[in-house]
Design a protein around this nucleic acid. Sequence first.
DNA 1: ACGCGTAGCGCG
DNA 2: AAAGCGCGCTACGCGT
Length: 568
Amino acid sequence: MYIVLAPPSNGQRISAGGDAQAAFLPVDAAGAPTADAIVVPVAQLGETVRRMEQPGIRWVWDSTRSWYPGLLAAGISVERCHDVALNREILRHSPSSSATEYGSQLQSRPDEAEDANPARVLPPLAPSPLQESLFETTQPAAGADVVEVSAEFAAQQRAVRDSDRPAQLALLLAAESAGALIAAEMEHAGIPWRADLHNELLESQLGPRPRDGHRPAELERLAGELRTALDNPRFNPDSPQELLRALHRAGIEVSSTRSWELQRHNHPAIAPLLKYKKLSRLLTANGWTWLDIWVHDGRFRPEYVVGGSMSGRWASRGGGALQIPHQVRDAVRADTGYTLIVADAAQLEPRVLAVLGRDSALAAAGRGLDLYQGIADQGFGGDRAKAKVAMLGAMYGATTGESGRLMPQLTRTYPQAISVVETAARTGEAGGVVASFLGRGCPPPSERWLSAQQTSSAAEQQRADSLARSRGRFTRNFVVQATAAEWALCWLAELRRRLRANTADYASAHIIFFLHDEVMLHAPRELADQVSAMVTEAARAAAQLMFGEIPVEFPVNVVVVDSYADAK
DNA sequence: ACGCGTAGCGCG
DNA sequence: AAAGCGCGCTACGCGT
């Protein structure tokens, strides 16, 4: 059932030498050993995993990142895992497990995620034995040996069992661990990236690649134009402070140099300035330097951080993988004979809100493919833009502007749904915690926040109220964003399961990108239709898995393209 | 020399 | 038209 994979404990080492070793300990669902541990040199790690891997086996390890990349490099993939470190962070914050022994222990221990330097509070750790050979890893296995990992696994299983909502929590932990496997597999596959096309794109907009430290021709030309228009021969448009002063001298009264604020003014300098900012952004964020660093052998390989944000959304490190501008997406091309399958969930967050509030009116609005149009038809005279602004405002906590004004209409039409976010906001403002549908909890208020609320002076009160409202907006958004994130995780996991169900046929079809509510696959052209159907079917299955039979639909848009730019 | 906060903008 | 959530990255400019 479960096999714990970790460095051996001291008594288990097969020789006194310094050779890196790995221990395999079969345990039952409660974490109790069912056989003796097997210890092998890491050189035999891959073949041992390959031999033991079989349907139904779940690998238990401290972190997927310390084991799985090496296995993938050796051509081995596994069906399921239990990522102890990821599950630890969920159980640390989940209100459902806070009363359990493990949950309360964790809350009194420092949070690795918040404490940048665990070495400060924990004894220094020996370097992981897995740093060598096959297993180069960025993150040591935290030093936990097989006895410690299996003990913590057992504690986590008990915490789920003793929690308020064992079924939901178990699903959340399984989905998070599946996400960890998928992230490692995506890093292994990489995003197919045509450096030649990217370079052409840069040259057509910026001119030829300049020598280091020089502006590309087009930026230089625009800078000259700006100096003339602002009658300011030597200013540097890359410095916001200088730019702001130059704009003021030219009589353009702006409080910042943000593009949207500049756009509202009429001056000959505005057009070249906006163009300069756009191109300058392209150059600095996704220019030639970016290509040199991040694209090798036709692949962009960023690092994904599963559970990297409190809501359970992923984060990424390196190359800005979750911010690939539309401007450069044409460089993402399927290999010859392959195709890109790009899918995104349609209006995921408001649909999630409909479930959270059991709001049949909102569910009815989403009966078609376009939820916002449905809302528009029910309460906004068919004006889709208004409906969208109102709904986003409700989920983000807008109080002013157009969405603030439209809120009352939304509250009248969907009282059930709106009360979910309003209640979450009130809870947060009062210093409470909220949770997603499956039980991921938001962090408690910081010490600083709490002490600010204690104030009695009138001058400080305003600041305290502002902080309280800010936390209210966070918790308001958290319930929706976190539930949407776990739907997306279930969607990914269901998709992966379908791809693996017939490994022989789908071995060359890979998930290569995931962005909150969007997924991209790279697959042989002849499999495009079957894979597209899997994506759609996985979305239906994810909703069923999380929510059971509900009258809310979760449609996905799926397109088959050669270039990511054609996916919209 | 390096670390850090801020401004600005990219994505959802 | 331009506020209100979650992230990462770059350059600037200040501090040490």
